[in-house]
C-alpha cells in the first residue's frame, strides 16, 4: 500500500487529486464564479503540499513551507476579492457570467 511507505505520499496524492478536481472545474464549468472556485481549490491543494513537505521535510525548524503557505493564503484572499469584483463588473457589463459567451473583445 502507498500509505504504508510514507505518510507524505498520502498527503501528496490527496493534494494532486484536489488540484486535478480544481483544474477540471475551472476548465469545464461555464460560470465564471465556478472557474474562480476551481482556482481556489488548486491554490489550496498547493498549500496542502507545502504544509506536508514542511512536516516531513528535512528542515521543519526553518518554517519555510509554513511561511509559504501563510503568504499563499494571503495572496489567494486578495486574488479572490479582485477576481470576484471583476466577475460582478463583467456581469453588470455583459449581463452574463457565462465564460463561453465572453468571446468578444469589443465592449
Amino acid at each position: 500500500m502507498i500509505g504504508s511507505a510514507s505518510p507524505l505520499a498520502g498527503y501528496l496524492l490527496v493534494a494532486a487529486l484536489m488540484f486535478a478536481i480544481g483544474l477540471a472545474g475551472a476548465l469545464t464549468r461555464r460560470n465564471a464564479i465556478l472557474v474562480l472556485i476551481g482556482i481556489e481549490l488548486m491554490l489550496n491543494a498547493a498549500n496542502l503540499n507545502l504544509i506536508a513537505f514542511w512536516r516531513y521535510g528535512p528542515h521543519p525548524e526553518a518554517l519555510t513551507g509554513m511561511m509559504f503557505a501563510i503568504f499563499s493564503i494571503a495572496v489567494a484572499a486578495a486574488e479572490a476579492a479582485v477576481g470576484l469584483g471583476l466577475v460582478i463588473q463583467i456581469h453588470r457589463h455583459a449581463k452574463t457570467t457565462d465564460v463561453d459567451q465572453m468571446n468578444r473583445m469589443k465592449g
Partner: peptide, 29 residues
C-alpha cells in the same frame, strides 16, 4: 447545462495532470 462546450478537452487535461502528478508521487515513494 452547466458545463462548457469544450468540457471533454478540459476533463482530459485535468486527468492528464493528475496522471502525471500521481505517477510522480508513486514513483518517488
Amino acid at each position: 447545462g452547466v458545463f462548457s462546450r469544450t468540457w471533454l478537452a478540459g476533463l482530459s487535461v485535468a486527468a492528464a495532470v493528475f496522471a502525471v502528478l500521481g505517477w510522480a508521487v508513486l514513483e518517488s515513494t
